[in-house]
Write a protein that binds this DNA or RNA. Structure first.
Lengths: 106, 106
DNA sequence: TATATGCGCAACTATTCGGTTTCTCAAATT
DNA sequence: AATTTGAGAAACCGAATAGTTGCGCATATA
């Protein structure tokens, strides 16, 4: 069973769940109310998110509050960084082109 | 057929392809040499990457060079931004804690 | 012109995925 | 003590996915 962050955020429902609980922990039932699926389906998504540690469950009596592990999200950012260098380099190139045009206008 | 960037980068082979062609355009055969699969499998991945416009094909005679559409990668960055605010806020909280400790030390 | 090469497409297969339904368990509520 | 409620686990289903093999087409090369 592949279970990494990239596979976890591939599903739009899971991305929505992440956005939902980003600011405050929520129970599966509360989360499910925001979607057109059953609680069990949400429960499955939460299991996947928990397995790759994007989400952390916390038991309170018979309720389980799920919250986002924001640090794990940084791993996506980290992967993006290698490409950020490239697009920033391209931006600088464009910058050069623009300043060259300006010079020619003078 | 769902075809968005998040689903595209969910597959580790596709992420590797993206990293490979990030700096220079490559042909399917050249890309396939870096993997333990057939050219056809790579070709399929390239089709998916092309469909969601993460990759752009350019025909040169009978060869097709695939290059990364770096701008499309920014969409992931854009999605991450909403969470970046949260983790930066948390970092600032930590910063406050640290400075409080420093004050107490004085 | 005949052959080799680069490539995409189609058909097929095994596996995974997202979802539903049913079940059980434990914690609240009555 | 009996009932309701929150939640995970298991069994099942249809659809999608990643991969393979085989094919045809167009462009090079001999």
């Amino acid at each position: 069973m592949r279970r990494d962050i990239f596979q976890a955020i591939a599903d739009p429902t899971r991305r929505a769940i992440i956005a939902l609980i980003a600011l405050q922990a929520m129970t599966p039932n509360a989360i499910a109310e925001n979607f057109n699926t059953t609680r069990q389906a949400i429960s499955k998504h939460l299991r996947i998110l928990t397995e790759c540690e994007l989400v952390k469950p916390e038991q309170h009596g018979r309720e389980i509050y799920y919250s986002l592990e924001i640090d794990k999200m940084k791993e996506i950012e980290k992967w993006l960084e290698q490409f950020k260098k490239i697009w920033e380099a391209k931006f600088n190139q464009l910058d050069q082109v623009l300043s060259t045009i300006k010079k020619q206008e003078k």
